[in-house]
């Protein structure tokens, strides 16, 4: 099963973390992920740079900031192919961000035949 691992950070806690160690840990984590056929993902700019769009009855609202105002913000993601949910949890534990935020594990929807991509 393919899992999307959503990284939610407390942006302040992350900024306070020892940066050199953090990114060194991340480099090692990405290397391990690649070796295991995972897909190292994407880091997002901070939520302060987000813009939110919604349309209702032909009326378009464009707002500054993220859609959900929470202490921990979506900060990025990666993918793992795991045989069991426990394996996915093991990858979440290894991710350095699990020490500064939360990793949300979501199975990816695989369409019945072909289509999505």
């Amino acid at each position: 099963m393919r899992y999307m691992m959503l990284i939610h950070h407390d942006e302040a806690a992350l900024a306070a973390a020892p940066q050199q160690q953090l990114w060194q840990d991340y480099a090692a984590f990405n290397e391990a992920l690649t070796k295991a056929n995972g897909e190292s993902g994407i880091r997002l700019e901070p939520s302060s740079k987000a813009t939110t769009v919604r349309m209702r009855m032909d009326n378009t609202e464009v707002l500054d900031g993220p859609h959900i105002d929470a202490k921990e913000q979506l900060a990025g993601y990666f993918f793992v192919d795991a045989e069991t949910p426990e394996d996915a949890v093991a990858w979440a534990k290894r991710c350095p961000s699990s020490r500064y935020g939360s990793i949300e594990i979501r199975p990816v929807y695989i369409p019945p035949a072909g289509g999505w991509k």
Partner: peptide, 9 residues
């Protein structure tokens, strides 16, 4: 060693 570090919890 890098991969081992990445896998360590």
């Amino acid at each position: 060693l890098t991969v081992a570090m990445g896998l360590a919890t």
